[in-house]
Simulated assay, not measured.
Amino acid sequence: MTETLILAAILIPCLIIAIVFHEVAHGWAALALGDPTAKEKRRLSFNPVRHVDPVGTLLVPGALALFGGPVFGWAKPVPVNPRRLDNPRYGMMAVAAAGPGMNIALAFLAAIIVGIAAAFATNWGSSLPEWALTAFTYFILINTFLALFNLLPIPPFDGSHILGGLLPRKWARHWQKLQALGMTLIFVIIAAAWIFPDARWIERTIWPPVMWIMEFFVGIAQSVELALS
């Protein structure tokens, strides 16, 4: 029980930071490209409450955890008005990429910090506390997973907006119509993962690149530690 509480105390702040920075990055990118909608709606805030979706952040993941399903959820999307962007087609691509890009940047920063902290600990004849190492590891893992998961070309994930901007205009119009089916597709994914757990589609599609990038960040942390030791 104690270990579960400690793990929750580590995971929840890591998840909140990753999600909030992800959403705010969308708003920052939109503002920089001409759309102040997120700013007007007071969504360029690091207050987690402003990004909570009662259904996606609380109800769905809570119910899934309670009934033993795959825990899955989402935050309230930052509002973006493509018509107010300087270049709606490519602006939406940049806004969509900003969220995953922020998560990768956070993971990179965490790798550098843990490398510096480990070096200072070594120089003082000690080592990083286990809880700190666990926290940094989960923080990097959560941000890496969130970035790659959102890059899936499935509406309404960020990857679908990026793909829509790359498609020829004729195809992009048809692709845009699929965005309305986004929430339906999300629930289909949840149901499929629950009904067919042996399929392990997440482990087979997202997990290999997540682990590869994790190894890259671990290498950065080790390089920083060696350079400063």
Rank of each mutant, 00 (worst) to 15 (best):
T4W: 09
I17P: 01
F21I: 11
E23N: 10
K39S: 14
E40I: 09
K41S: 15
R43V: 08
L44F: 12
F46H: 10
N47G: 11
L59V: 14
L64G: 04
A65P: 01
P70A: 09
P70M: 04
P70E: 07
W74A: 05
P77C: 05
P77G: 06
V78S: 06
V80Y: 05
N81L: 06
N81R: 13
P82S: 09
R83E: 12
R84A: 12
L85K: 07
D86T: 11
D86W: 08
P88K: 06
G91W: 00
G91T: 03
A98Y: 06
L106C: 01
A107Q: 06
F108D: 01
A111W: 02
A117I: 00
A119K: 05
P129S: 15
E130Y: 10
A132V: 15
L133I: 03
T137A: 13
Y138G: 00
N143W: 00
F145A: 14
L146A: 03
A147Q: 11
F149I: 12
P153K: 05
I154D: 07
I154Y: 07
P155M: 00
P155A: 01
I162L: 14
P168R: 07
R169G: 02
K170H: 09
W171E: 14
Q176F: 10
I190W: 04
I190F: 03
A193V: 01
W194D: 02
F196H: 11
P197W: 05
D198T: 14
I202Y: 13
T205E: 03
I206L: 15
M214N: 04
F216E: 00
S223V: 00
S229Y: 04
S229N: 07
